[in-house]
Structures are given as structure tokens and as C-alpha cells.
Design a protein around this nucleic acid. Structure first.
Lengths: 245, 245
DNA sequence: TTCGTTATGTGCGATATCGCACGGTCGAAA
DNA sequence: TTTCGACCGTGCGATATCGCACATAACGAA
């Protein structure tokens, strides 16, 4: 008994918001509301995908799990994007796991319906392809960042990406969760977070990190955040950054 | 005065080889032969792309250059793929530099022509999209590998990716070049290469690494090589790996 | 053949991160 | 209000990699 998605609701996802009235119309009937909690898994690596997801308030992480149990995030998706590019790229499955990093709402659309809409080749296809390139940029930058930048700068980048995709300054996530995303030890996050808190960029409570000084956090981040952010703006024509402090 | 590309030549690139006769026909007239030497730059980061490239014997690296001068490769393309996915994804430019990692031949096609062929939406579009997903997988795996695996295992992965895209067992490249690709010190490569040579997996001459024991090199590599290779096979329906020793 | 350039080999202290261990503390549930 | 599990803080030795310095060796051009 899925909820019907209204036009106003749909506009909470930037990709859908960028559609013309007429184009959105056809999609609305195919979208369903879903609400997901922290840790829920949307796709398992190699598993057939039945739906693609357009987040509104939820944040989804794509991560790899290695043989030895090590994990690392390759990208993050919020209300600027869509989970499931493999569907319209034609691969059906993907080598990563997609899980809920921050609880919230999403729309989902059936695999078949997404493909049909994509094949129509209008603005929707164009948007999905441009989003794919933005995602590609984010993943590329993650690769470089993993190689070249220290944990503390990477943590800043990661907090900023999350902050951009949230309505609040409170990020509800444990050091342990973040360490799995960044592919480092939990202690490494604890230490880095303490340093950032000492500089008054964030506060650091049990299970919650609050962004205090957004501008300073950007300054403390490696260049990777800004590069990805600029590219998202260029490709998707809409500011992602919440810079306003 | 670019050379005309024959049907037989075109089949040296797997993406073109996968086309039906009729589809290839239309493309042939739009392709030009180009020959590039080591170090030549196809695209600069953020620069407008005038052509896309289908390598046959050349190998192209996509790499990022950071503010501090650090570099890291995000992916490699040979005769299995195409350089310039940003053109049909709609972004026009990309945040990475594309340069020749191993000298050789490529076909190039004008931006406009590629877009036109893509828009026709047939098997060519489908192939390009599937290739995009394969590339996405490679880049993702690079991100994870950069985070979690030691230099020696990564070097194995990198050598295998190059070996797959070459006709010879001799890889003409200096330790310094490889270190720029992997984003590590030159000495790190020298050390790792010496260890691999001591185990008789490769030989290591000034400016040239020769693959001696391909199977053992695969065993010495982190799992990342095999994951990417499997995914290329699945998506592009053709074995990339040169495993035969 | 010689010479100069470029590539490789090696050593060493500095640094970042790891792996592990354990103590402290917070907060939700009983 | 107590308790218990989850989360955070901290210390310490081990390890991987870095940054630098410099020696040696291979190759190509003169």
C-alpha cells in the first residue's frame, strides 16, 4: 500500500525537481514513498536491483566490503541524486553495497519503469546521465583522497558531504560508523574528531557530531570537497553546498 | 590528412568490434587514425574535449593532479574501451587528465559525431553505457584499493591491468612513472618491484618490466584486479584477462 | 669510448596509521 | 534508579610509508 507521491513532494529530490511539469507527470504514478532507518541495505553487492531510489531526506552510502572484512565508502548520495545508475547503464547489478547512512525518506521506482523512462530519451535521460558523471567525479575524487590526504582532512570532507545532504547541523552517527566509511580505525576518527572539536569546528557528543563552524570546516578540509562540489554545481546546475555560516 | 579506418582495423577495439556490420559502417567514416607517444596528453582537466578516443594498441591513464603536485591514477583504458565518456554523459569536460601511458594507436571521433551516434540509441549507445559502468567499477575499486591494500599488491594489480591491454609481456615504463600513477614514492615502487623480481614474477630492467609468471602475479595481487576483471567480462562480454601462462 | 643524463638501489630518521588492550562514561531499558 | 551494553578516550609498540640524501649503474649521444 505505498503512498502516492505528490508533485510538491517529488520536488524535494533535485533530479526530479529539474524536470518539466509534463515530464514529471508521467513519473509520479510510478514513484512510491519509502522510509528507511539507519543501516538498512538497499542493494547487496552483485544482487539484482529491483528498484532505483531517489532520496529526499535520507542519505545513502555506497561501500565496498573486501575479503578481509575491510570496508570503504566510494560515494554518497542524497537528495541531489539517485541510487541505481547500474539499471539504466545496463549492468543490472553493481559491485558495491548501498546502505542507509542517515535515516529518512526516499522515492523508489521499479527497475522496468526506470528503464522505460530512460529510454524515452528526454530531459530525464539527460539528467540521469549528467548525474552519472557527477557521481563518477565524486568516486574519482574519493580514490585520490584515499591515497593522498590525511584522515583529519578526509573527515572534514566527509562531514561536509553529509552536512550538504541534511537539513540539520546534527549528524547522528558514531565514530565507528564513520571509520567504516572512511576505511580507517575507529580510534583514528575519535582522534581527528577531537582535534576538530578543539578548534571549535564541530562538537562531539556520544553518537552525534554537530557542525558549528561550516566555513572553517571547509577550510580544514582537503581540496577534494570543493572540487566535487563545484563539479556537482556545474553538471546539475544547482548549488549543493550549504555554505552560509 | 587523417588515415581512413578500415573495418578490419576497427575491430581491434572491442567496443567497435561488438557492433553489427551495419552499425559499424556508419561510424567508420567518422573515425580517424592517430598515433600517440608516451606522455602525450589527450585531455587536460577541465578542458573542452574535441574528440573521444578508441584505443587499439595504446594505453591511456586518467589521473588527477592535486594542488600540492601529488598525482594519482583513477583508471586505465586500452582497447577494451573509450576515452571521453564525459562527452555522451553530457558534461563536456572532466576533472582528470588523460595521458598516454603506453605509446600506440587509437581512433578518434569528433565530439559532435560521437554525440550524434550516441543519440541514435542503438547498440552503440548500449555499449557505451555498459562500458561506463565498467569504468565506474574500475574507479571504485581503485578508491578502495588505495585505502586498504599495500603497495606491493597494488603494483601487481597495476601491472596486470597494463599487461591485459598490451600485446607484449614487456611493459616499457620507469618506476618513476608508475609511482606517479599509484600516487606513491618512486622508492616504494623500486622496492616492491625488487621483491616481485626476487620471487621471479617479473624481471626488472632499466625502464622495462617484463611479466614472467602471469599466474603468480595474479596470486600476488590484491583481490581488486580479479573483481574488476570479472566485472568487465560480465558487462562487456569479452575476456580482458590474458591469463594463459 | 667517453661522458652526461636518467634510472635504479639503499639507508635513515620522521610520521601516519594500525592493532590491540583497557578504562571510563553515557544513556536507554528494565 | 540501577544496570548493562554501546560508545568514546587513551596509551603503546609495530608497521608502512614518507622525505631526503646520495651512491651506483645503465644507456644513448657525441
Amino acid at each position: 500500500m505505498p503512498d502516492k507521491v505528490t508533485r510538491a513532494e517529488a520536488r524535494n529530490n533535485f533530479l526530479l525537481a529539474a524536470l518539466q511539469e509534463g515530464e514529471l507527470e508521467g513519473l509520479l504514478a510510478k514513484l512510491e514513498n519509502v522510509s528507511l532507518v539507519l543501516g538498512e541495505v538497499l542493494y547487496e553487492s552483485g544482487q539484482k536491483m529491483d528498484y532505483a531510489y531517489f532520496p529526499t531526506t535520507a542519505i545513502i552510502s555506497m561501500l565496498y566490503i573486501m575479503e578481509n572484512g575491510g570496508t570503504a565508502e566510494i560515494g554518497v548520495v542524497g537528495n541531489e541524486g539517485v541510487i541505481g545508475v547500474a539499471l539504466f547503464l545496463g549492468g543490472e547489478t553493481t559491485a558495491s553495497r548501498a546502505l542507509v547512512q542517515s535515516a529518512g525518506e526516499l522515492f523508489r521506482i521499479k527497475e522496468r519503469d526506470l528503464k522505460d523512462e530512460f529510454k524515452k530519451g528526454g530531459r530525464f535521460q539527460e539528467l540521469l546521465l549528467r548525474y552519472t558523471q557527477a557521481l563518477l567525479t565524486q568516486i574519482s575524487q574519493t580514490a585520490v583522497c584515499n591515497r593522498l590526504h590525511p584522515i583529519e582532512e578526509q573527515l572534514c570532507r566527509w562531514l561536509l558531504l553529509s552536512h550538504d545532504r541534511l537539513q540539520s547541523d546534527k549528524l547522528v552517527m558514531t565514530h565507528d560508523l564513520i571509520s567504516n566509511m572512511l576505511g580507517v580505525r575507529r580510534e583514528g576518527i575519535t582522534l581527528a574528531a577531537k582535534k576538530l572539536a578543539a578548534r571549535n569546528l564541530i562538537t562531539n557528543k556520544r553518537g552525534t557530531i554537530t557542525v558549528i563552524d561550516r566555513k572553517a570546516l571547509e577550510a580544514a578540509s582537503c581540496e577534494c570537497y570543493e572540487i566535487v562540489n563545484t563539479e556537482y554545481n556545474r553538471l546539475l546546475g544547482r548549488g549543493m553546498s550549504r555554505t552560509f555560516n
